[in-house]
C-alpha cells in the first residue's frame, strides 16, 4: 500500500513531525518554565494509589496490569467474534493476531514437538501478557499523571495551579521554582489532586508526582509471579509426561543404592538440579524487571537531560526491547517446559 500512491500523505506526515519537533524545542528551551521537563524521581517499589480492596492496597503497577488484562480480554473477544463470523481470510488487526499466533505456534512446535499442543497455552499467555504490558506502558500519561504528594526526600518543586475541572483541581510541578537547591522531583509536569476543601490547606509545599499508572514490569512482583507460574508448571508438565519418575531427576535414590560412587555423584547432581530450578525463578524475574526498569530510568533521565532529539529514538528502542523481552521470556518458558517433558534419556542408558 505504501509503495503505490500516497506521496501526498507522506508530505503531510513530514510536516506534522517537523511541527512536533518545533513544539518540543519550544517547550524544552524557549517556552515558559512550566513546560520544561523535570528530572525524574526514581522509586523502586510500586507506590500505592490510595485505592484499596479491604486492607489490600492497590498499587499503580497493579492498575497498569489490570489495564493490560483488559486490553487482552477485548482482543480475545474481538478475535472470538471474528472466528464466529465464519470469514476465512483475516484482515487488518486479525491478520496481525494470526501472524503472532502462527509465530508462537511455530516456535513452540519447533522445540516441544508432539507436546506442543498441551504446552502452548502457558508460554503463549505469558508472551501476550508481557508484550501488551510492555507496549501499554509506553503510552504517554503513564508515570506522569498522578497525585501530587509531599516529597519525602525534601527535594522538589513548587506546585502550580493549571485549571479547575469541577471539584477537581489540576496542578503541575514547575521547574522554574525549585524549592531546594538540589533538583530532583516528580516525573513529568502534571498531576491531579482530589482537592476537597479540607485537604486544601494540607497541600504539599515540596512536591513530587505519584503516578496513577506505572509499567507492570517495573514492579518485581509481576515478573516474579510469571516466573513462579512457569517453574511450577514446568514440574507439572514433567510429572504429566514422565509420571512420578520425573522427580528422580532431583533425588536419584535408585542410582544411589545401585550405582556405587557414580550414584553418589548423581545424587549430588540431583541436588544441584533443585538449586537450578530456584535459579531459574531468579533469572526469569530479574531479567524482565531489570530490562524494563532500566529502560524506564534511561527514558526519563535522558528525556530530562536532552529533551528533543534522543527520546524518540529511545522510544523505538524501548518498543523493540519490550517485544524482545516478551519473546525471551516466552522462549525460555517453552524450552524449560519441553525440556521437562523430554525426560533424561542420558541417565537411562547408563
Amino acid at each position: 500500500m505504501s509503495e503505490a500512491k500516497p506521496k501526498k500523505r507522506f508530505g503531510v506526515k513530514r510536516w506534522i513531525i517537523l511541527g512536533l519537533f518545533a513544539v518540543g524545542i519550544y517547550a524544552a528551551f524557549i517556552g515558559p518554565s512550566i513546560l520544561k521537563p523535570v528530572s525524574p524521581v526514581v522509586v523502586l517499589p510500586a507506590e500505592p494509589t490510595g485505592l484499596r480492596i479491604g486492607s489490600f492496597q492497590i498499587t499503580n503497577t497493579i492498575l497498569a496490569t489490570l489495564l493490560a488484562d483488559l486490553i487482552l480480554i477485548l482482543m480475545a473477544i474481538g478475535v472470538y467474534r471474528f472466528i464466529k463470523s465464519g470469514q476465512l481470510v483475516p484482515s487488518g488487526f486479525y491478520n496481525t493476531f494470526e501472524a503472532i499466533f502462527e509465530f508462537m505456534w511455530n516456535s513452540v512446535e519447533g522445540t516441544a514437538g508432539k507436546w506442543a499442543k498441551r504446552i502452548f497455552p502457558i508460554p503463549a499467555t505469558i508472551f501476550l501478557l508481557v508484550l501488551v504490558a510492555n507496549m501499554v506502558k509506553l503510552v504517554p500519561g503513564f508515570e506522569s499523571i498522578g497525585q501530587i504528594e509531599q516529597s519525602p526526600s525534601g527535594e522538589g518543586y513548587a506546585p502550580v495551579k493549571l485549571l479547575q475541572l469541577g471539584g477537581l483541581e489540576v496542578l503541575t510541578v514547575d521547574k522554574g521554582q525549585p524549592v531546594t537547591l538540589i533538583t530532583a522531583t516528580g516525573e513529568t509536569a502534571s498531576g491531579n489532586i482530589k482537592a476537597t476543601t479540607g485537604e486544601a490547606e494540607a497541600l504539599c509545599t515540596i512536591c513530587e508526582v505519584v503516578p496513577f499508572l506505572r509499567g507492570s514490569a517495573t514492579d518485581l512482583n509481576f515478573p516474579l509471579a510469571l516466573a513462579l507460574i512457569t517453574v511450577v508448571m514446568t514440574q507439572v508438565y514433567g510429572v504429566m509426561a514422565l509420571g512420578p519418575g520425573y522427580f528422580s531427576k532431583f533425588l536419584p535414590v535408585k542410582q544411589l543404592v545401585s550405582g556405587g560412587i557414580f550414584g553418589l555423584i548423581n545424587f549430588v547432581v540431583g541436588i544441584l538440579e533443585i538449586i537450578l530450578e530456584i535459579a531459574k525463578i531468579l533469572s526469569f524475574s530479574f531479567r524482565l524487571f531489570g530490562n524494563i526498569f532500566a529502560g524506564v530510568i534511561l527514558l526519563s533521565i535522558l528525556g530530562a537531560l536532552l529533551p528533543v532529539v534522543i527520546p524518540p529514538g529511545l522510544y523505538i528502542f524501548e518498543v523493540f526491547f519490550g517485544a524482545i523481552q516478551a519473546y525471551v521470556f516466552f522462549l525460555l518458558a517453552t524450552v524449560f517446559i519441553s525440556g521437562a517433558t523430554a525426560g533424561h534419556h542420558g541417565d537411562e542408558q547408563h
Binding site: 523502586l44 530479574f286 531479567r287 524487571f289 531489570g290 530490562n291 526498569f293 532500566a294 530510568i297
Partner: peptide
C-alpha cells in the same frame, strides 16, 4: 542484568 540490579539497589 544482575549487575544492573545490584547497582540499582
Amino acid at each position: 542484568i544482575y549487575a544492573l540490579v545490584v547497582a540499582l539497589i
